[in-house]
Simulated assay, not measured.
Amino acid sequence: MNTVTDTVHSRLDDRLAQGDIRLLSTDVAQRRLAALSPLRLAYVAQDGTPRVVPVSFHWTGEEIVMGGFAPSARGRALRANPRVALTIDTDEQQPEVLSVRGDAVVTEVRGMVPEYETYMRAGMPAEAADAYFAELRARDVLMERIAVRPDWVGVVDFTTRYPAAMPEWLRS
Rank of each mutant, 00 (worst) to 15 (best):
S25E: 15
F69W: 13
D14L: 00
H58W: 03
A122L: 07
L12D: 02
E117T: 04
A165H: 11
E135P: 03
A131R: 11
D20P: 10
I64A: 12
E127L: 04
I21M: 11
D20R: 10
L136H: 12
A73T: 14
A35R: 03
T3N: 09
V44I: 15
A164D: 15
P150E: 08
S25G: 09
Y43A: 08
M120N: 05
E117V: 02
G61A: 07
W169T: 01
E117S: 04
R51Q: 14
V28A: 06
I146P: 15
F69G: 09
P95F: 00
A138Y: 00
V109R: 14
E108C: 02
E62P: 07
S25T: 09
T107W: 10
S172C: 01
Q30D: 02
R110C: 09
G48V: 06
E92P: 00
E127R: 10
D140M: 09
V148H: 09
P163E: 01
P95A: 00
V55Y: 03
F158W: 13
E135R: 15
Y119P: 02
Y119F: 11
S10H: 06
G102E: 05
T90M: 03
G111Q: 05
P125T: 04
W59V: 08
T118D: 03
R31M: 00
G68H: 04
D47W: 07
D140Y: 00
A129G: 12
P150K: 08
H9N: 15
L78S: 06
L136S: 04
L24P: 10
D91E: 13
M120L: 04
P54S: 02
